[in-house]
């Protein structure tokens, strides 16, 4: 599987990552070689195999809807780069 610069740019955008020209070159090469390795999965017939995400038998986990203390507001905000009052502050979202 060969992946080109345009595709790299597309995935980088999906990932919200900006690449330098140098990084783009490097990733084209590295991701192509990783994806070629992964191609080997296509030699297996999985037509009648079910996909598996969790190895334990997990079903929905319910609990009673009871009030419980949560992390305090000052603690929630303490690591934020910018806050205003009881809010996280970010650049303008809607123009």
């Amino acid at each position: 599987m060969k992946i080109d610069k345009e595709e790299i740019e597309y995935i980088a955008n999906l990932s919200r990552i900006r690449l330098t020209e140098q990084e783009r070159e490097l990733f084209v090469h590295q991701l192509s070689s990783i994806l070629s390795y992964i191609e080997k999965l296509n030699t297996l017939d999985t037509e009648n195999v079910k996909p598996m995400a969790y190895t334990n038998k997990v079903s929905n986990v319910f609990r009673e809807d009871e009030l419980e203390p949560s992390i305090s507001l000052p603690d929630v905000l303490i690591n934020a780069p910018a806050t205003k009052g009881c809010f996280f502050k970010v650049p303008k979202v809607i123009e």
């Binding site: 999906l14 990932s15 990552i17």
Partner: peptide, 21 residues
Amino acid sequence: CRTRSEGFGNEVKRRIMLGNY
């Protein structure tokens, strides 16, 4: 975009991109 590009190292970027792909 700039936060993540500055904050993550190359291996992390590579894996996030591979996963999103």
